[in-house]
Structure formats: C-alpha cells, structure tokens
Design a protein around this nucleic acid. Structure first.
Lengths: 119, 119
DNA sequence: AAGCTGGTCCGATGTGTGTCGAACTATCCC
DNA sequence: GGGATAGTTCGACACACATCGGACCAGCTT
C-alpha cells in the first residue's frame, strides 16, 4: 500500500516522481543530501522563495552548473525526501517538504537554514 | 631519516591535534561528517556516555570496523570540528564539542541526536 | 505538422571516500 | 633496557559522486 503506482501505468499518474514516504526518511541520507554546498544553496533558496518554486531556483541559488548537473542535484534532493517535485507540462515546480522533514527530524531544517556562511 | 628537522620541536606541544576553531565551523563539512552511519553511531555513543569517552567508543557504538578505519572516522569527526580529542599517554579521549556546535549551529546536534533509527 | 524548448538520462571523467592490512610511532609496564 | 600495546599513517583498492556534453523525450507554439 505504500507504493500506489509502481512504474507509471499508462493511465494518469502523470506527476509521479519517486519520492520516499514521510515515514521512511533516513537521516544519513538527508544529511548527505544537505552536505553539498550547491544543494544547500538550493534548499536555502527554496526556503526563501516560499511555497513553491520553479526549477530556476538554480539561478536564484547562484548555481553556475550545467543543466544536467542541476537536474542531478534536484534528483538527489528529491530522492532523499528533502524536496517535492510537481510536474506541469514541461515545467517542474520544486518545493521543500517542510512538514515531513520537521516531523521526522524536528528542528533539523531550521538549524540548517539558520546557518549563514561568512566567507 | 624521514623527518629531520620537520616539526616536533624538542619542547612540549604534545597534545596538539588539529581541530578547527569554534568560529570556523563549516556546515557542509559538519553535515558530511555526520552523514556516515558509522560516524553517526559514534557521535550518538559519545553523546550518551557523557563528558569524555575513550576511543573504545567504537565498540560501544557497535562499530565492527578495523583499527585504521575507526581512526579515520575519528579523524574526520575531529577535523570537521564535531569532536575534541585529548591525548594522554597512548590513549586518546574523545568528546563532543557540544558548546561550539550549539553556538555555531543551534539545535543541529539536538536534532541529529533525537533521531532514532527504526530498522 | 514541424519545430522549439524545458528537463531528464547516459556515458565518460576526474576526484573523493570507506575499507583494509601492514608498517610505523610513541608510550607504558615489567 | 626490552617488550607489549594504543593509535596513526601509508599504500591500495573498490566504489560513489560531482561534473560535463550530448542524446533523448515530452509538451508547448506557430
């Protein structure tokens, strides 16, 4: 019952991108996802731009990487359970899974977001 | 023949193990240090055994790795600023740098330690 | 329909990391 | 002194990962 639709049946299911269930979040995996400076910047940008944000968050985060690299980072964040991705047409809207993260690891996201890099 | 006049002045300096200053802790580095399950187990064991703990924390943490691997993990934790290491004789006592971590990343350590793995 | 375009996937590549055993260092104890 | 012992360091190895360009696929747009 955990996995409703396995591999996108021909029916609807359009927006199904694999994301772990809220009760299956793994701390080491999440920490590893957040340990990359680029991904951390993305998460921070997502937190700042409110509810939902288009993939251009890469630009907003000041990322200077190629398309495929950005896609890879978003995939890591998505599969670790940090972000949710909604597909609409050719666009993808990314958002932080704040509630799920807060319930699985209380205050973790706050602690991470509170950090300011003094370079 | 290896180290003629390298470092090691004839004086004291004994217990100097490299650890970053409290105001130089880097979040991605700390997160990466905590992202390894083995190191996370060590940190948890350190938190449970109070103030200071000998290196046998590896056993207490249930680590089944070799000496060199354990040494490596402790080095990563030390150099990331998560732990403090005090040398006494042939023994090394490891402790969490709770204060420094809490002041640099408030609630981060608490959030990490609060997590319980349901396997 | 035909093309454009946002985004993913695929290979390749260089770099980092976890693991080990063995060699080495330093300290303690008899 | 001469071991014995705690711990680090040194290759070495396999594997994972960040990065890239280009191929590919699916919706828009005209």
């Amino acid at each position: 019952m955990s996995v409703e639709d396995q591999v996108a049946p021909p029916g609807r299911a359009a927006t199904a991108v694999e994301e772990p269930d809220a009760d299956r979040l793994d701390l080491p995996v999440v920490l590893a996802a957040l340990a990359d400076p680029g991904r951390l910047a993305i998460v921070r940008a997502l937190a700042e731009c409110g509810e939902e944000c288009c993939v251009k968050v890469g630009e907003q985060a000041g990322l200077t990487v190629g398309k495929s690299t950005l896609s890879h980072h978003l995939k890591v964040l998505r599969e670790s359970g940090v972000t949710h991705t909604r597909t609409q047409g050719t666009h993808r809207y990314v958002s932080l899974r704040r509630d799920d993260l807060d319930s699985a690891f209380p205050h973790l996201l706050d602690a991470v977001l509170a950090w300011r890099d003094r370079s």
